[in-house]
Amino acid sequence: MIKVNKEDMEYQEGMTIEDVLRRKKYTFRMITVIVNGKVVPKDQYATYRIKDGDNVDVLHIMSGG
């Protein structure tokens, strides 16, 4: 189990940040991904592997109207 924006998500072997974003339908582009308190650079979303128990925060900048 991992946490994504404080909600549980099932952990899957080998999942990357990109997988997490896809599962959550996080399509907005102005985001910052923080894993266990550390910012992950955008260009690593496809390769960065999540570990079981990780705490992932996907901060969306608000935009809107």
């Binding site: 924006n5 996080y26 925060d57 608000m62 109207g65």
Partner: peptide, 16 residues
């Protein structure tokens, strides 16, 4: 009107 505040991402998505 949303021009005063648009907090949905902060609140509902980021849970900040």
């Amino acid at each position: 009107q949303h021009d005063e505040a648009w907090l949905i991402f902060m609140d509902m998505v980021n849970k900040q």
